[in-house]
Design a protein around this nucleic acid. Structure first.
Lengths: 335, 335
DNA sequence: CTGAAAGCGCTTACAG
DNA sequence: CTGAAAGCGCTTACAG
């Protein structure tokens, strides 16, 4: 029932090759011809079949996006940045969540899912040392990493170590010396942001001559409820902590909750600082180190587009973070 | 460089038709043949080209997802529900955000973007009376609406009127009689959830013999900062409100902030209730009416899959909401 | 600037 | 259960 390029060619009295060129806006078409063809196509309400174009041209016009989690703030923001820059170029995005968001687990690996379907892939927030990534590389299309680095791949990320240091330096400047740390998982793989943030925490303490105290590190798994428990644990160590650095804002929310449930005042009795620049940090007065998450997605998209068109090899970019002090560290005075 | 089905056929000593059938798991293939073909294909590391399959079969294997916003909680949750149910069936999702998330605005309408690319589309959180939807319908593929209804389309939504009523009834039961309302936009189109929630608010008041007072309705545009201002406005009316119903949890967060900034206590001096069941409502002790957002996405996916395979006409489903009282209405005692 | 023709890699009646 | 063959709707050297 749908029209084909042949119908348009016939109506315009030209070859299908010319219609194809005209409709795609290629250079080598006489302006008058192009105009006429375009007008006729529009008149017939014709549109090229993307599927046929893809098969004929060998380009998929799609990129893959791989991420462990699909409904989390960080991913969502990166994704928005990607969509924003890619949609105008008419590239489709094929999403694959490798994580445990699936009730039944995701049967396919990202590599299998993406195979023969994409011209390149953006990997968000995944450890760069996994089989998953390994298999993705076998696809032999450009890959760009967001939030991590890899010796052989393009990437865009932040300096997690420095970011963490900014957070803890802030606490230190406020006079705190017993500073708790709510991290993610107890034994993260090498190379991932958690390690760097941990190192930044240690750096800051060391610069003040404060040694690392294992009792002050607890784990919140990057979720609110687990961070609540972690904070409860932290509140029981002695000598007591007067401040806590959380590796994510969401964990910081959990920590804040536990603190007020204990009858303590966030920012006055115990200082809390997060990491991310979550969209609700402002309204809940949470001090944090902001990372330009959406921009991460934009930059990754640009890298990928360039790589797909073969215009360059691997590139790396590190974006800046900024400390945003609020009353969760400054106290009621700042509210 | 990539292998084709012909290579596999040659290696297996069968026709391409048989390879095609075997690899797709069709019934009419001798089990032994299938097994052998599959083994050989695997040995060659061969995978069918989805693009070629699509062109040959006429099915796109994709569905479209249209939404005004891409990085908002509601959308994200629905999307996760969709992804979760569709990914295992190997259907690709083509996303189109029609909203103003784009720096440069989105040049294409959803209809144009989706054209010839999808077997069906899910429309999330859009007013059902728009050109956008109109053009989508012209695609002549099944459409299912999430969060709204339409006389001619399948849909899955909640009863917004009843949900709002639950919220306000809760406030009324607590003894409040001056109840503010933070809505979205001043003049929403007909047929959309805002109107229903407004009606539910009025229903509840009317049942207690309380008349509608225009001074008590302010607008927060579904954003935190605008809700903060709206709440500030509300705090200045007299006689004063003792409670407020916000049409979204995010607006409720803004309201809570304004209230505490004024030195008042949320839940004790002023009760606040939201709407949605946002993921952080619990940690911030916000009373709310929860809607099963992810489930909305799952149900929509099932509807769409059935429609795509021609198994049924339009269907509607209304999911339940549940009141979740917390200390933002119950007061410190519940904390 | 334009066209004829081959080809992209599959699927699907149709026939057996 | 299997195969030969046509066809899906484009794009792209190649030739002019």
């Amino acid at each position: 029932v749908a029209l084909t390029i042949r119908d348009v060619a016939a109506a315009a009295g030209v070859s299908t090759a010319t219609v194809s060129r005209a409709l795609r806006g290629l250079e080598n078409v006489d302006p008058k011809t192009r105009e006429r063809v375009v007008a006729i196509a529009r008149g017939m309400n014709f549109a090229l079949s993307p599927v046929a174009s893809r098969l004929a041209s060998g380009r998929t016009g799609s990129i893959g996006i791989v991420t462990p989690y699909i409904a989390r703030w960080y991913f969502t923001e990166v994704f928005a940045g990607v969509e924003e820059t890619l949609a105008p170029h008419d590239v489709d995005m094929l999403l694959h969540s490798s994580g445990n968001g699936h009730s039944d687990g995701n049967p396919l690996s990202a590599g299998e899912r993406m195979r023969r379907r994409v011209d390149g892939v953006i990997v968000i927030g995944m450890s760069p040392r996994t089989d998953e990534l390994e298999r993705l590389a076998e696809l032999e299309v450009p890959v760009v990493l967001v939030g991590a680095q890899h010796p052989e791949l393009s990437s865009v990320c932040i300096d997690d170590r420095l970011g963490a240091r900014k957070a803890v330096d802030h606490l230190l400047a406020l006079g705190h010396t017993r500073i708790g740390l709510i991290g993610g998982r107890p034994l993260p793989t090498k190379f991932i942001p958690e390690n760097d943030r941990f190192t930044g925490y240690c750096d800051a303490l060391a610069a003040e001559g404060i040694g690392y105290d294992d009792l002050l590190q607890v784990y919140g798994m990057f979720t609110v409820p687990e961070a609540q428990e972690a904070m409860a644990q932290l509140l029981d160590v002695s000598p007591p902590v007067t401040a806590v650095f959380c590796m994510s804002d969401e964990m910081a929310y959990g920590a804040m909750r536990t603190i007020s449930q204990r009858g303590l005042r966030v920012g006055d009795d115990i200082a809390v600082i997060g990491f991310d620049g979550h969209s609700l940090a402002g309204v809940f007065d949470l001090s944090t180190v902001e990372q330009p998450v959406r921009e991460l997605g934009r930059v990754a998209s640009h890298f990928l587009m360039r790589a797909v068109s073969g215009r360059e090899g691997t590139t790396e970019k590190v974006l800046e973070t900024v400390l945003r002090p609020r009353s969760s560290t400054l106290g009621a005075a700042a509210r």
